[in-house]
Each structure stands twice: as structure tokens, then as C-alpha cells.
């Protein structure tokens, strides 16, 4: 069961994309996704795909990896597709069956929405595949830092993310162990109806929660002992600096957005 879960799907590497500042990568990912949402015709999507492909090539990650990332979400994508098919009001019917009339607009909308989701997932995958969880939390914390003036808990959120990332492998291992220990006492996690299965989870979940609370307690004390006192006056080991790579990245993305907008105006 352990090996079925791929954690923080970071793909270690030393490409230009890997070396970019996480803050810039975060911003550019958002910009890219906004760009994709502005697209509303096929050439635009081809352009978005080409841009993504280029980035992935530079990063040295296999494109199939990105496609794999979309797989778990295929049902959600299909769902939105169907939803759009049914509920978008259109004027150009293609065919009708009883109450249902499929229109060209609905079909277009459905396809585009599905494509947007696919690009959303693939775009963020590029970010998480090329940025380690540590850098990601670092980048997030620093991007959100100005919000702290409005009492937004940027540091606390980042700290929580770090701790969660740190403890996920530990708790997974623990889950595996408790599950086996209960199986050794004849517990059955696999058969029975939904209710029986839910009930069978109790011997697993209770010890897991007890353990998580104990760990939280221990960790809080250990953090205190190491002078932890929140985010104020805290320095960081790693300072983030924008480099020429980030400028390139920003320009490339800006170019992409410009072309998308121009193209939209020309063809749309």
C-alpha cells in the first residue's frame, strides 16, 4: 500500500527550470494558467501545448510523466465535460435526442473546459516536478510575506506545510505497521460491505490519531527547546535571489501571453 502513493512528486534535477527561483516559478505558473483560461480556440491550445512542451523539454522530464499526472483526475475532467455538454445553452444544434439537444456551443465549451483542466494540472505538475517541497514552501512563504501586515499567517502556514511534509512518510510507515499489527490479531480490512469496511478502519485510525497527537506534543516541545518563537525576527538559511534565468522565464511567459492575446483578437 505504501508504494502506491507517490509523494511530493519532485523529480530531482539541475536544469534551468529546476534552478529558477521558486517564487518566480509560482508566479509564472499562475500567469500561464490564466493565459490558458483566456484561450478559446484550437490554435491557442496548440500554442499552450507547445509552450508547455518546450518547458518540459528544458527541464529534462519525460512528457509522459505529465500525462500520468492527469490520469487520476480523468473522472473529474470527464464530469465537467459532460456537465458542459448538458447545461450550456447554445443556438446551433448538431443533433437532438428527446429532451436533449447537443449544440455546437455546448460541445465547444465542453472541450475547452476539459482542455483547460488538463492544462491546469499539467502546468502545476511542471511546477511540482521541478521544485522540491522545501523550495515550494519557501517560495510560498516569501510570496505571501507582504500579506502578514494584514495578519495573514504566512509563516505559520509555511511551517505547517513543512511539518506535514516531514511527517507524511513517518505516518505512512506507522499506518502500515498498525495495519499489520491488527491483521495479526485477525482484523480484516478488505472484505465486507461499505459499512463493515468503515468500521474495520477504527482499529487503524484510533492508534494513528493517538500517535499523531503524541508526536505533535513531542515536536512542539522539541521546537520550543530550540528557541522557536514564531516567524518574527526569524532568518533563513537559504536566501532566495532572482537570477538571469528568472528574467528569461518571465519574458518567455510574457511572450506566450502576448501571443495568446493577439491571436485571440485576430482569430476570435
Amino acid at each position: 500500500m505504501l508504494k502506491d502513493i507517490t509523494l511530493g512528486q519532485y523529480f530531482p534535477g539541475d536544469s534551468a527550470i529546476h534552478r529558477m527561483d521558486p517564487r518566480m516559478k509560482l508566479i509564472l505558473t499562475i500567469v500561464y494558467i490564466v493565459g490558458v483560461f483566456m484561450v478559446s480556440n484550437l490554435p491557442g491550445y496548440l500554442l499552450a501545448l507547445a509552450f508547455l512542451y518546450l518547458v518540459v523539454r528544458i527541464s529534462g522530464i519525460k512528457f509522459s510523466y505529465l500525462v500520468k499526472g492527469v490520469k487520476p483526475l480523468r473522472f473529474i475532467i470527464l464530469f465537467t465535460f459532460v456537465l458542459n455538454l448538458f447545461f450550456v445553452q447554445g443556438e446551433t444544434p448538431i443533433f437532438s435526442l428527446g429532451f436533449f439537444t447537443l449544440t455546437k456551443e455546448a460541445l465547444n465549451n465542453a472541450i475547452f473546459f476539459a482542455l483547460r483542466l488538463v492544462f491546469l494540472v499539467m502546468g502545476t505538475s511542471v511546477l511540482t516536478l521541478t521544485t522540491s517541497p522545501v523550495q515550494l514552501t519557501d517560495g510560498l512563504e516569501r510570496l505571501m510575506h507582504p500579506l502578514q501586515r494584514f495578519h495573514f499567517p504566512a509563516h505559520e502556514l509555511a511551517m505547517m506545510m513543512t511539518i506535514a511534509l516531514r511527517f507524511i512518510p513517518t505516518l505512512l510507515e506507522e499506518t502500515d505497521k498498525i495495519q499489520k499489527a491488527q491483521m495479526a490479531r485477525g482484523a480484516d480490512f478488505e472484505s465486507g460491505n461499505l459499512l463493515a469496511r468503515a468500521k474495520a478502519m477504527i482499529p487503524l485510525l484510533v492508534p494513528l490519531f493517538v500517535s499523531a497527537f503524541r508526536r505533535a506534543n513531542d515536536l512542539a516541545m522539541a521546537m520550543e527547546a530550540r528557541c522557536y518563537r514564531g516567524g518574527d525576527h526569524r532568518t533563513r538559511l537559504r536566501e532566495l535571489r532572482y537570477t538571469r534565468l528568472d528574467v528569461f522565464g518571465a519574458l518567455a511567459t510574457a511572450a506566450f501571453i502576448a501571443v495568446v492575446m493577439l491571436e485571440g483578437r485576430l482569430l476570435g
Binding site: E174, K177, I178, A181, A184, P203, P207
Partner: peptide, 11 residues
């Protein structure tokens, strides 16, 4: 089978 630290499985 009694695992290591078996008290962690009590529920």
C-alpha cells in the same frame, strides 16, 4: 505476532 512497541496498536 507481537510487533515492536505493540502498545501503539491499542485502540
Amino acid at each position: 505476532l507481537v510487533f515492536q512497541y505493540p502498545e501503539n496498536q491499542l485502540f
